[in-house]
Amino acid sequence: MRNAFVQSLGILAKRDKKLILLTGDLGYTVFEDFKSKFPKQFLNVGVAEANMMGVACGFALTGFTPIVYSIATFVTMRGFEQIRNDICLHYANVKIIGTGGGLSYGHAGATHHSLEDIAIMRSLPNIIIVCPSDRNQVKAAFVEILKHKGPVYFRLGKKGEPDIYTPTSPFTIGKGIILKRGADLTLIATGNMVYNGLQAARILSQKGVDTGIIDMHTVKPLDEDVIIKVAKATKAIFTLEEHSIVGGLGTAVSEVLSEKGKEKIYFKRLGINDTFIETVGNQEYLRHIYGLSIETIVRRILKDFTKYA
């Protein structure tokens, strides 16, 4: 996803000279090419995220479109109040790019695990949150978020995510994509969990549990219509995200279901429970241990099967 982002950034920066990349000293081996091709559109602000957000606000209010880049935890947390006051309050046209969403930085440890970023960004007015699921969606979504003139949080994975879409797959901010329909249950997944969700849905369907899946790439504004619609056509909804179950996609979907959904539906959030990761391991390993690998997702869903079937 990261490479796809850098590629589309290069294409779009060539067309729009007001696009400027600000990085908090991250992007070694990633931005060298961009920097040499567009030296006037690249600015390494240094390891100072709070200042970077303020600078981005100043750029945006004087006609630039700043693209602010760092690891998801740092970019959303170090300068949170600056994002709130300087960017969201002023409706500054700043795109905040968080790389390494979820457990992408597995071995790096808890400081690098981005498990609360969606929750805290979601609490802010005026911001749009997009979590693309593969490289093709990164490119399609990036074009759309640049068309939107306001604050966006764009949560990337890292690299090597399997393809789900083709380069021509359509993308609309705020419109969930129904990848598969299911009468027994529907998974609503976001970002780098969509692929695992899709595979789990196929396996579950083969096992006789008719499982659907929605790619909810935009967590804010949430596509309430698709949630309400699908809730009528399925017996259970499971949300799936590489993020804490507190405050993220699962919470957002539960808000819609509890206020606007039908009365009886089985609902469960799959994500990282309210905990820091204490195990050492790479992303795949941690997903397995914490129940977010394809196999463990299938197992967790089947375990509850009797409750909703």
């Binding site: 600015l43 709070a50 200042n51 957000m53 303020g54 600078v55 981005a56 606000c57 100043g58 750029f59 945006a60 209010l61 004087t62 006609g63 630039f64 700043p66 109040e81 600056q82 006051n85 300087d86 309050l89 002023h90």
Partner: peptide, 18 residues
């Protein structure tokens, strides 16, 4: 809009470099 301290120079620097 201000009121939280320490934001001014960052925003001003962004405008100045712009």
């Amino acid at each position: 809009s201000t009121g939280s301290l320490g934001h001014g120079i960052s925003i001003g620097a962004g405008m100045a470099i712009s």
